[in-house]
Each structure stands twice: as structure tokens, then as C-alpha cells.
Write a protein that binds this DNA or RNA. Structure first.
Lengths: 243, 243
DNA sequence: CGCTCTCTTGAGCCACGTCAAAGGGTGTGG
DNA sequence: CCACACCCTTTGACGTGGCTCAAGAGAGCG
């Protein structure tokens, strides 16, 4: 809107996506199949909050953060994106947040009107679209619960577990989790400060629940982490058995 | 799921909604036109978190809260619902939160499969559905920003303003805002305690920004409230003019 | 080897939570 | 019509979890 647009070159061509789709399996991700891959360095933005929402993207490799900034500079990260994720589906006319690469990233761009055409022509995509939006909604709700009522330690534990689940499923003890984002990113995601995140992490290390290997975290005792995180699925079960 | 279902009687009949729709204006709200009105007293639940998501509802009169509870009893309110609002559109197979009446409430029930049929048969409803989901997403994002980075005073100011905007638009000085929910509800919505909410309110009163008239709040100086709230729309504008 | 950027660690402080008690308001029963 | 009970709200005194400020310690990189 008031910012210059993303530093990437070559708008996604109209391409052979149609053909690919009209014969293919027609999953949400597959509709990006024919699109040109665009590259971003760490720190570059895919788009800015307030920009006209002209495109959707599929992340091919790398990692990104979705950022919102208050007028006085306070920063909030509302989510992280990894390979396979699709961005920009919140089909307002303007993007709700800035999306920046955390690490070198590759993404495919799809024009929004093109996307909408496809949704129109391929009814089987619709439930997937709805489901995608509902998944985003679920994640947002979970984040609201975390921010409204969880302690710093619970937030960090929840964060680590949610990353593990997203990238792996149920972790076995010793699972090695890659954290491409900085402590500042984590802090801005969890509504904490760098220092607090750091202190909590070292506390978890000293309790032998995780280990710190540079940009990797080893999940030594997933069960302990889940207990700290107050995963409310477990909670509901506990409630159910109690009554 | 593990709870007994809502205390309401009479499931929404299959009714004349079809007829009404296939000839009518086909807005999301209008598809509830033919449905029987069901009544709830304050405190009764429309449905419970985890219940099979069989129905959608349109609020006719009254007010409700959407509640999530952690295993140890900590409570989070993720939103409030008023006349005209539609609930249950997050079409997962289970409800994401419990929805309870704050005050005596009337609502119309629509079977989910019926709703999905309508969406299928009336393409003009689809963009409205998408837009509805995106509006919910926007609200959730705003709440995440509020909870992650705003102070108690900013939260209360933001809350009052958002209610005013929702029910009235831009307020004139002296606008009288009805607050059907208790301080506890407000606190659980803003991630604060009753006491903090109460203290902030009396501070705003003593600064002559609002006045307290029982269950009503008079917005005496909307501009002052907006300044406190750090409405980030304003923020972006400021940024834009600065650079 | 020095520069920069990120992360850790410590000391002190403050916004908000906790605990406690005292108002109102409203409904109910005597 | 009063008395009592109950609930919600306000207010005060005090405690504390996480923030602020400050100083190192790694770790990549030219």
C-alpha cells in the first residue's frame, strides 16, 4: 500500500496450471504445480500488510514469518510458514500481515483471480479451501488461548510441541527439531521478550527436557514438555474422566 | 462430546428455507429465515466445545460468549455474539468452543448438511461464506495482537471501541454502549483479571473518557479512547506519512 | 582477527495478579 | 416493607512473573 512491493522478479505466468489441474488430483497444493519458482533471501518480504492481495503463494522450501507491527514499533508474529504451506488464502482485498522470509526461501506465486477461477471450475477444491480456512482459524484460536492465559513456560513448551507436531507428528524422545527463527521471532510470536524465552529455554535444558544444539532443539522428554504445555486436548480428556 | 447437549427443545425443522432461498436475496443471514426460533436463558449453552458440529445458528436477539477452558479451569473467551451474528461456520466436524448465552437469547438453528446443500446450490452464497470466514480470521488476528503486545489499558480501550464500531460505527461523544457481559467475561476476553478490568474502568472514568451507568458505558471522549487503544490502522497511516 | 549479530545471564523494578474486605443491586421469603 | 442472601463490582494492600537495563559470551564472516 504505502510500501514498495516485494523484491521478487517475474510475476507468475498464466502457465500450464490449468492443464495440470483439470487432469490432476486437484489438491490445493497441486494447483501451484506449473508456477515459476521465486526466490527470497532471509529478511525479504513476500508481501506487505495493506498491499492489494493480488497473489497466493505456496512455500516450496525455506521458512517465513507473518508479522504485524503496532504504530510504536511493537511487533507481533502471528504465524510461521514452512515448505508445503499456502499463504494469502485470507481472501480480503488487502493482506492482513507482512510475510517475510526467515531463511532463504523458494515459493510459487499464483494470481488470485486465477485461483478464484480454479475454485469456480473445480468443485472438488472447495471443501479443501474451506478446510484450509478452518485450520487457520483453529490455529488462531489456539494462539489466543496461549496468549490470554498461559504462563511463559507453558507458552514455550506449547510452541515447541506445536512445531514438532506440524513437522513430524508424535515425537519420540530425542527428536531433533530445527528452529530457523531467532529468539526474537519466538518472543514476538509468544508475546514475551527475548530474555524470557532464553531463560525458559535454559531452564528446560537444565531440567533435561530439551537440549540446545545451535539452531536445533533436541526433544529429550516429549511427555514432560506436553505436561508443561497444558495441551488442552489432554485437558478435556482429564475432565471427561473426572466427571 | 462428553457433555450433555444443549438444553434447547425442538430441532430446527427442514422447513421452508429452500423456498425462501431459491427465490430470495440469498444473503448468508437470509437462509435462516424459515427456521424456528429457539430460546436460551442466561448461562445456558447453545453447544459445547467438542460436540459434533451438526448445526449453525443465527442470533436473533440477545448476546452470547464463545468460551474455551483449560484443564485446570483457566477460562478464555474468544468472542462475543450479538443479534445478526452467525455461529458455527467454522466447519470442522466438532465445535471449537462452547457458546453460552450471556443474556436471554433467541437463535435460529440450521442443520449443517442443509447449509452445505444450500451453499452447493446457490453459488452466490459462496463468496459470502468465504468473506465471513475471513472476517472471523481478521478478528482473531486483531485479538492475537491485543493479547500479545497491548497493555491492560490499551486492551480495555480497544475492547470498548471494537464493541462500539460493531454495533454503531464511528461513535459521537456521549454514545451509550450496552455491555451485557460481566467484568469476568471482559477479563477472560482480554486476558486480564476482574480486578484489573475494574481498576482500568474507574481510571477511564476519573479521566472523564467514559462514564459508568450500570450495564451501560457512556463514551464521552471517543478520540481519547482511540488514542489509548493504539488502533493500528491509525498507526499505519502515521507510518506512511512519516516516510 | 576484529566486527556484528544473536544469545545468555544477572540485578532490579513494575504492571498486573492475588488475597481480602467492603459496597451496591436485585430477588426472595418472612 | 424489611431482612437476608447472593452476586457482581470496586477498592486496598501486598506479592511476583516477566520486563528493563546492562554486560558478557558465542558464532558466523569478511
Amino acid at each position: 500500500m504505502y510500501h514498495q512491493s516485494s523484491p521478487m522478479i517475474r510475476a507468475g505466468a498464466r502457465s500450464s496450471a490449468d492443464a495440470a489441474i483439470l487432469g490432476g488430483p486437484a489438491t490445493l497444493a497441486s494447483i501451484f504445480a506449473g508456477q515459476v519458482i521465486e526466490r527470497l533471501d532471509a529478511g525479504e518480504a513476500l508481501f506487505w500488510q495493506g498491499d492489494a492481495a493480488r497473489d497466493l503463494f505456496e512455500v516450496v522450501t525455506g521458512a517465513l514469518r507473518t508479522v504485524r507491527v503496532l504504530s510504536d514499533g511493537r511487533r507481533v508474529i502471528t504465524g510461521f510458514l514452512f515448505a508445503g504451506d499456502v499463504v494469502g488464502v485470507s481472501l480480503k482485498d488487502r493482506y492482513l500481515a507482512t510475510v517475510e522470509a526467515i531463511a532463504p526461501t523458494e515459493a510459487r506465486r499464483l494470481r488470485r483471480h486465477h485461483f478464484e477461477d480454479l475454485i469456480e471450475r473445480r468443485p472438488s477444491l472447495r471443501p479443501q479451501l474451506i478446510e484450509h480456512l478452518c485450520d487457520e482459524m483453529t490455529a488462531a484460536q489456539e494462539q489466543v488461548v496461549l496468549l490470554a492465559r498461559k504462563s511463559a513456560e507453558e507458552r514455550v513448551a506449547s510452541f515447541l510441541l506445536s512445531l514438532v507436531h506440524r513437522r513430524y507428528g508424535q515425537p519420540h524422545p530425542g527428536y531433533r527439531l530445527f528452529l530457523p527463527m531467532t529468539r526474537l521471532d519466538v518472543a514476538d510470536y509468544l508475546g514475551l521478550t527475548i530474555e524470557t524465552v532464553s531463560r525458559i529455554m535454559t531452564r528446560l535444558v537444565s531440567r533435561d527436557i530439551i537440549a540446545n544444539q545451535g539452531r536445533f532443539i533436541v526433544i529429550k522428554r516429549p511427555a514432560a514438555l506436553a505436561e508443561i504445555a497444558m495441551d488442552d486436548d489432554d485437558g478435556d480428556l482429564a475432565e471427561a474422566f473426572a466427571s
